[in-house]
């Protein structure tokens, strides 16, 4: 049987803003159907990495493959390149840090939005899918509510429902637990595990929460000052003797990671 393509492959990816080096020679291979938790202190390039993965930012050098397709080779200034990029992005769902729900749409329309744009489904099928996904994230009868009426946790869960509505192969989560209470964080972690089990999606979760990494990760990466300090299967990383990993998981101020 042919070996499955890795979901994501990074080859020596570099990204700078002026003199500020944000990513430096980041390389990794994430197999399909796995959960990667990318850890790191604030401001170390985690969100930039996520934006590069989905083509919102272009690396200065290096290559990014999504299921074998080199997205850094696509030129969005040309219409053909933009079409290819859009086709590639349909493989992704993304949970933004603050949800990024559309303010002028109710919850139901927010979740239905990607379905109406891309899925060949009737309005009845879309309504059923919306209700199913909202129930999956623990929300019932909220379709008519506006995003402004929801709590932070509910907004994130609605954003989650929207991110998975099209059943993407890869889901990117930008700090899903930030700003949430521990119970809500644990609920979101369970949700990721449940979705991973039931829909076999690949997840890339950006976080600085080590408890979250221990709970949900198949793979863990540690990014610091734009360099990938450690990357590998969870068990291997947790056994690592690297000082940065130990400092981060021990929540210690003593070690190579300095407060910026």
């Amino acid at each position: 049987m042919a070996e499955q393509q890795p979901a994501i492959t990074l080859e020596r990816v570099c990204k700078s803003f002026g003199n500020n080096r944000v990513l430096h020679e980041v390389s990794l291979v994430l197999p399909a159907g796995k959960i990667l938790v990318m850890l790191g202190p604030s401001g170390t390039g985690k969100s930039v990495l996520l934006r590069c993965l989905v083509g919102l930012m272009k690396p200065d050098s290096g290559r990014i493959f999504v299921e074998g397709q080199d997205i850094t080779a696509l030129d969005e200034r040309r219409s053909a390149g933009r079409e290819q990029m859009f086709a590639l992005r349909r493989k992704f769902g993304m949970l933004f840090q603050d949800g990024a729900l559309f303010d002028d749409m109710c919850v139901g329309d927010n979740v239905a939005f990607p379905l109406r744009q891309h899925a060949k489904m009737s309005e009845r099928q879309i309504a059923e899918r919306v209700a199913e996904d909202l129930e999956r994230v623990g929300l019932k009868n909220v379709q008519r509510k506006m995003p402004a009426e929801l709590s932070g946790g509910m907004r994130k869960r609605v954003a989650f429902a929207r991110a998975i509505a099209l059943r993407p192969r890869i889901v990117l989560c930008d700090e899903p637990s930030s700003g949430l209470d521990p119970v809500m964080s644990a609920t979101l972690d369970e949700l990721i595990l449940d979705l991973h089990r039931s829909l076999n999606m690949t997840f890339v979760v950006i976080s600085h929460d080590t408890a979250e990494a221990r709970t949900i990760a198949d793979y863990i990466g540690l990014l610091y000052k734009g360099e990938l300090q450690e990357f590998g299967p969870k068990e291997q990383v947790l056994r690592s003797s690297r000082l940065a990993i130990n400092q981060f998981f021990d929540r210690s101020t003593d070690g190579p990671i300095q407060v910026l």
Partner: peptide, 18 residues
């Protein structure tokens, strides 16, 4: 501008909507 600062425009891009 409000859609930009709240990442709604980026969300459209990620959803492959121009």
């Amino acid at each position: 501008a409000n859609m930009q600062i709240s990442e709604q425009v980026e969300a459209l891009e990620v959803m492959a909507v121009d």
